[in-house]
Design a protein around this nucleic acid. Structure first.
Length: 556
RNA sequence: GCGCCUGUAGCUCAGCGGAUAGAGCGCAGCCCUGCGAAGGCUGAAGUCGUGAGUUCAAAUCUCACCAGGCGCACCA
């Protein structure tokens, strides 16, 4: 059991002891929150329970605190329990407990930080899912990083995670794209064919058309237009998906499932879902189109699922897709990471889930605010439809994958952030992004030196770790499982980079004050003990970096 | 107009209803003939957008207002 849970139990026991002894009234239940005080001198852990109980118990908080402290169960883990401030209970742990954690962490190795708070849960997380009509542009990088970071986190919390990309290979945009590709193909063949009214004007389409033209020797030129377009569909899709995959790999992102929208039609899932909605009375025909009657579920307006032209809307296939997620694959939780420009889609998607008999709370939508980019002091707006494309690849080449990931992960999804491209490019050795990595490299260096000097620290005695900064470092490291659990619960990956920074800071302060490898023969015992500490610190920092999808360099 | 999100140090951003609001960058200093100075230490810098309210306690919850972003398609 983790220390926070142990302490929670201890406080609960103390409370009930005091109550059965008649010292405290039995009234007043409150959740016991164990927190880590940010202020030094306030113990290793603290609870504000007495302050919370004051009202229902009709007693002064310090009096309640005193009663709990006096009834606190004996324990060799807890060194000191005291009343402090307006009614806090501050708990100080025994050094022996911290020292022991060094061994616990070394034994856990790469598994350290894992929890079981989400174990047994089958969670699907869908992110990026950009139309396969071109390379990923920078605007998609944020959702990509947040989605993948979150997936790592949920996995660490014990969930069975499926990372998924929804490929819109059956919609309008794909049609527009392929028509553009056709026009470019004909142009490559020397025909003066204009781009369609709505098109993808980017050069990359022309490049692909030229490739295809050269490869097939112009075989499509004489075909009827519709047939040629049909023939171009698959190569266009394949090429773009390949590009997208490569770009995502640049950001250290991979998927378990690439889910085809078209497959919903091929398997009949789409029709079955529409029928289910219809049978439920949620479909109305109006103005020649078919509508999902979301107003029946309290929405502002209905939404078209089948256009008067007969084509399905994006919304319609997304409903079928979510039906598949919940009813076919039985996910306990489905998380969609969308750009904030899709937020109008949230309420109706949840309404659709409800209409299908799915608890809408199982569908969690994370909206990440659109990133704006700044260059030469000016805010830029990128749009795929205009001819300005700054791709994810260009961003990664400029700034580096680790820096991109760290930057996006360290900010909450809902913060409206501005990415200063000049600054990002400028960032080099003083980049704060590298603070955590540097700590890892430094720790690796110490361990490397120790090995090269022939020190075997396997029998190191951790009870020698009594220095204030040694204990402080251990205290930081041991917090990882709690951080993982909390950030997984709240779906807030930004807590990891901040925590990692704190561990790195504790490490640097320790390093500054405590010599690890010494030439003095007499220092060997403490050297060995500190090597164990260094090893456990490296494990914690490496784990954070892995969770963030960043490299944990041995040297820099 | 209606809805959602955001407003915290010069800049970029953290902040779990609780004790003296934090970090990085930038700025002013100090510290390597000892494991990596991509580091450590000290300092300056804040009406937590504004105003009310709830609470023993509000940056955090409620409401109003101001400013910015996004949405309100038979686009995705």
């Amino acid at each position: 059991m983790r220390i926070t849970a142990q302490l929670r139990d201890a406080v609960a026991e103390a409370l009930s002891n005091a109550q059965s002894a008649g010292v405290l009234p039995s009234a007043g239940a409150s959740e016991i929150a164990i927190e880590q005080p940010k202020q030094e001198g306030h113990g290793d852990f603290a609870t504000s329970l007495p302050l919370r109980l004051a009202r229902t118990m009709k007693m002064a908080p310090p009096a309640i605190a005193t009663a709990i402290v006096e009834a606190f169960p004996e324990s060799d883990v807890v060194e000191k329990v005291e009343v402090a401030g307006p009614g806090f209970i501050n708990i100080t742990l025994a050094n022996a407990w911290f020292q022991e954690q060094v061994e616990v962490i070394r034994a856990a190795g790469a598994e350290f930080g894992n929890t079981d708070s989400k174990s047994g849960q089958k969670i699907q997380i869908e992110f990026v899912s950009v139309n396969p009509t071109g390379p990923l542009h920078v605007g998609h990088a944020r959702g990509a990083v947040i989605g993948s970071g979150l997936a790592n986190l949920l996995e660490a919390a014990g969930a069975d995670v499926t990372r998924e990309y929804y490929v819109n290979d059956a919609g309008n945009q794909m049609r527009v794209y392929t028509e553009t590709l056709y026009a470019r193909y004909m142009q490559a063949a020397g025909h003066d064919v204009p781009l369609p009214e709505t098109s993808y004007p980017g050069e990359y389409v022309a490049d692909l058309a030229k490739d295809l033209y050269e490869k097939d020797g112009g075989a499509l030129v004489d075909l009827p237009k519709e047939e040629a377009i049909k023939a171009l569909y698959q190569p266009g899709l394949d090429r773009n998906l390949a590009l997208i995959k490569e770009d995502l790999e640049e950001l250290n992102i991979s998927y378990d499932v690439w889910f085809s929208e078209q497959s919903l039609f091929d398997t009949g899932r789409f029709d079955a879902t529409m029928k289910e909605l219809e049978d439920g009375g949620f479909i109305v025909d109006r103005d020649g189109a078919r509508w999902f009657a979301s107003t029946q579920l309290g929405e502002d307006k209905d939404n078209v699922v089948i256009r008067s032209t007969g084509g399905h809307t994006y919304f319609a296939s997304d409903i079928a897709y979510h039906a598949e997620k919940f009813k076919e694959r039985n996910f306990d939780q489905v998380i969609d990471v969308w750009g904030a420009d899709h937020h109008g889609h949230v309420a109706r998607m949840k309404a659709a889930a409800t209409a299908l008999g799915v608890d809408p709370n199982k569908l969690e939508i994370i909206l990440n605010q659109i990133v704006s980019f700044k260059e030469d002091g000016e805010s830029l707006r990128f749009s795929k439809r205009k001819n300005v494309i700054v791709t994810v690849r260009e961003l990664v080449d400029d700034v580096g994958s680790d820096a991109v990931r760290y930057t996006f992960l360290s900010r909450g999804a809902e913060s409206q952030m501005e990415f200063d491209l000049d600054l990002a490019r400028k960032q080099s050795s003083d980049n704060p992004v590298y603070y955590v990595q540097y700590a890892h490299a430094r720790l690796s260096g110490i361990l490397r030196n120790a090995r090269e000097t022939g020190i075997d620290w396997a029998d190191g005695d951790v009870s020698l770790l009594t220095h204030e900064l040694e204990i402080a470092l251990i205290r930081q490291i041991t917090g990882l499982p709690d951080v993982v659990e909390r950030s997984a619960d709240r779906l807030e990956p930004q807590q990891i980079p901040h925590y990692a920074t704190e561990v790195a800071r504790a490490l640097q302060r320790f390093y500054d004050a405590c010599r690890v490898i010494s030439e003095e023969e007499d220092d060997l015992p403490i050297s060995k003990a500190r090597l164990k500490l260094v090893e456990s610190a490296r494990i914690a920092i490496a784990r954070c970096l892995t969770l963030m999808g960043m490299n944990a360099p041995e040297r820099m």
